[in-house]
Design a protein around this nucleic acid. Structure first.
Lengths: 334, 334
DNA sequence: ACCGCTCTTTACAACGTTGTATTCAACGTT
DNA sequence: AACGTTGAATACAACGTTGTAAAGAGCGGT
């Protein structure tokens, strides 16, 4: 049922290599020979064994994208853009969920699917710079976190500036007690740390105090965590008049908690998020957010990866920053 | 930098096969030999070439999951469950986005990544039974659509019964003008056709007329399409007092359009969806929905695939139905 | 001392493909 | 008529791994 080059060759009365040449579009094949071979291929339903081809060629035409969780919409949207960008390089993308698990992330970084992929676009959650110092034999581009001294190419939005911009926007609408949701005090929470830094910088620039009771932690960044953190803020009596959530799912959870508490958004409390996921454009109210250019992010990551694959020890690891914009919607109207 | 069995063998002073035996945990290797080999592996940072291994073994340990779009939350959630189910079989999952494009779907079904995967869990959008009659040499399980005479294993929720149940629930809360959003009159829209059938059956069972002006088509099932369809329904003067949307993202879009039109949910119009995506548990109002057992769906699909891989021509293609439940939330409160 | 047994290690071939080098034929040029 | 040039097809080896079969080492029982 499964045929090989050899079967086609016998059927067409030519050598194995000639069939290979036809399959690969080699120029110097006589038209009638080509026709005969194509006929045999059609007849037998021949399909090349990609394993054998990849072994021979040393390349696979597949890159992996490793993300913590696909059902965080941000990562799903990122995946779509990476797939699109990879298609322009004639690559297909193998998508991998790490679950943010350090063990799993280490496996991925050290090349779990060795030789089955040409390269890796990696969005680590738990991994620190030290972990990455361990060999990563597969060409790799990091996305979305500023891991120090990573020794790998890196693409990210300027988290500090972006968080600063959004916080400044909230202050600009007259809010004075701006809370933050999503703080993480572990070594792993690099993104959380950077966004918190931008938040406090904006407060200080506006001459407002940094009130620790207004800063709510969240170990994960799902809707449930945002709702829980918002409830905690309200019950603590901290009385925020605005909340900057470190991502959009947190913000959507916070919206829900505010609704349950009978507070109006934005009249009583303004809410802002980060990532510009599709959900935020249809929620009630619509969600103000920081929008990283995801298409740009994906394209840059894939292009950097292409360069790294072409020349593994070429230029030193690069850091690229992707532009971001503020999308002001109903949830932070003045 | 990249080492092979041969390099390890030379370093350890043994044959290539002995190293292979150590790597594969073969029992009869003398402890000191094993130690020497392991040391050499460690020293050289050897990692097996999976391409070569797969070529030799004829299996890869990878299955593919092909879905239309990852940023439809339903598919992202499904993906998570499939990954989990596959892990129980020691498989990793390669996730593929078809975009619902017929050409791309045909490629996937006919085995685009031939020999790189052991099997395929496929959620087709555009593909019809006739298309599938074409050879699919890779073991395959279809998920989520009742394609007639598919000739492949199949797992799905009972769409007709589920749509019937939800429509009956809406009627049970006293609604009389129940609209439907998501109808598709193309040959491809199998799911849409089945859910529409359940909807009309429930109306008829309740002695209500099937009013064509209450049935709104939607080519795609995103939030934007739901919002547009809802606006069209409102502007047409059809005056529905309930809307059954054929999936949750349509429903979330409809919620938004109703809000924009100044109508209250559920007081003026009740809204129901299908799929039970996470978003619906946090929207304002929370969304009533039909919840297929996604974990069960994924587990069943993967188990069927495992059986099919083990015995390609074993039992005739099976049809499995996955249980569903109604989750009644704020959007359809009586 | 020999046999048969188990444990350990090995040589060899094969998985299906493609790059290199080669052969053979046909052609136009000198 | 001999030549180089080009086109078309081929044989062979190699990519890195593992299954098969077989060889060598060590043992106890006769």
């Amino acid at each position: 049922m499964r045929h090989r080059l050899k079967d086609v060759a016998e059927r067409a009365g030519v050598s194995v290599k000639t069939v290979s040449n036809v399959v690969n579009g080699y120029a110097h094949v006589r038209p009638d020979t080509r026709a005969r071979v194509l006929e045999a291929i059609e007849l037998l339903g021949y399909r090349p064994n990609l394993n054998a081809r990849n072994l021979r060629r040393g390349r696979t035409g597949v890159i992996a994208l490793a993300v913590p969780e696909l059902d965080l919409p941000y990562f799903a949207e990122l995946a779509r853009h990476v797939v699109a960008a990879a298609a322009r390089h004639d690559w297909t993308v193998l998508i991998d969920q790490t679950g943010g698990d350090p063990t799993r992330e280490r496996e991925v970084a050290s090349g779990i699917r060795d030789h089955m992929i040409d390269g890796l676009v990696f969005s680590p959650l738990a991994l620190t710079g030290a972990d990455l110092a361990a060999v990563h034999p597969t060409p790799m581009v990091l996305v979305g976190e500023r891991v120090d001294h990573a020794g790998a190419d890196h693409v990210a939005v300027d988290n500090v500036a972006a968080a600063h911009d959004m916080t400044a926007h909230l202050i600009g609408t007259g809010r004075r007690r701006v809370a933050a949701i999503g703080a993480q005090h572990t070594v792993e929470g690099v993104t959380a740390r950077l966004r918190l830094a931008g938040y406090t910088a904006a407060l200080e620039a506006a001459g407002l105090p940094v009130d620790p009771t207004l800063i709510a932690p969240a170990t994960h960044w799902h809707r449930a965590d945002g709702a829980a953190a918002m409830r905690a803020l309200l019950e603590s009596g901290a009385r925020p008049d605005a909340v900057f959530c470190f991502n959009d799912t947190l913000a959507l959870g916070a919206l829900r908690a505010l609704h349950d508490a009978g507070l109006r958004v934005p009249d009583d409390v303004a809410v802002a998020g980060f990532d510009d996921i599709e959900d935020g454009r249809y929620s009630v109210p619509t969600l103000s957010t920081v929008a990283p250019d995801k298409a740009d992010l994906a394209a840059l990551a894939v292009d950097l990866l292409a360069a790294r694959i072409a020349a593994p020890d070429g230029a030193p690891p690069g850091e690229r920053t992707v532009p971001h914009t503020l999308h002001v919607r109903e949830s932070t109207a003045a």
